[in-house]
C-alpha cells in the first residue's frame, strides 16, 4: 500500500492505493468522483478522461501512484460559467450525457493549446472519444462556441 495525495480540483485527498491501483478506481472509489467513468477499460472511449496539469489522461489506463501530488481536473470541478461548460449546455451538446464530461475536458485541453481551432483540428483532437448517441454535430457547435467565448 502507498499513501498518496490526489489533488482533485484543488482539494487534496490522502488515499491508500496499491502499486497497480488505476487512477480511475482511486478517483471513483476513494475520492468519490463520479464524473469520470469506465466505458471500455482499454483507453478506447474517453469516458474516463481527466486532466493532469491540464493534459488529458485516460484514467482507466493510468496508475494512481504516478499522480501523487499532480493537480488533477475533473469535469465536475469546472464552474457553471466555464466557457466550455456553458457552451456545451447552450449547444444542447448531450443526449444520455455519459461521455460528455470526457469531451468537455478534451475541449479544455484543445483550447488551452489552440485557442481558435478549425473543424479538422477539433475532430483530430476529439476522435478518441466515443459518443454512442452520436451528438457529434452539437459537440462541434459547442467547441466553436467555447472558442469564441474563451477569446472574449
Amino acid at each position: 500500500m502507498n499513501e498518496i495525495t490526489l489533488d482533485v480540483n484543488g482539494t487534496p485527498h490522502k488515499v491508500a492505493v496499491e502499486d497497480t491501483t488505476l487512477l480511475l478506481d482511486a478517483l471513483r472509489r476513494r475520492v468519490g468522483v463520479t464524473s469520470a467513468r469506465e466505458g471500455c477499460g482499454v483507453g478506447a472511449c474517453g469516458a474516463c478522461t481527466v486532466l493532469a496539469e491540464g493534459r488529458s489522461v485516460s484514467s482507466c489506463l493510468a496508475v494512481a501512484v504516478r499522480y501523487d501530488g499532480t493537480p488533477l481536473t475533473t469535469a465536475d470541478g469546472l464552474p457553471e460559467d466555464d466557457p466550455v461548460v456553458s457552451s456545451f449546455v447552450d449547444s444542447d451538446a448531450m443526449q444520455c450525457g455519459y461521455c460528455i464530461p470526457g469531451f468537455v475536458l478534451m475541449t479544455k485541453e484543445l483550447l488551452s493549446e489552440n485557442p481558435s481551432p478549425n473543424d479538422e483540428e477539433v475532430s483530430d483532437h476529439l476522435e478518441g472519444n466515443i459518443c454512442r448517441c452520436a451528438t457529434y454535430p452539437e459537440i462541434i457547435k459547442a467547441v466553436r462556441l467555447a472558442a469564441k467565448r474563451s477569446a472574449t
Binding site: T34, A75, E80, V89, D92, G97, V104
Partner: peptide, 15 residues
C-alpha cells in the same frame, strides 16, 4: 433544453 443539461455536461447527475 433538457432540465438537467448542466448536470450532464459537468458529470454531476448520478447514474
Amino acid at each position: 433544453k433538457r432540465f438537467d443539461a448542466l448536470g450532464r455536461v459537468r458529470g454531476t447527475i448520478r447514474y
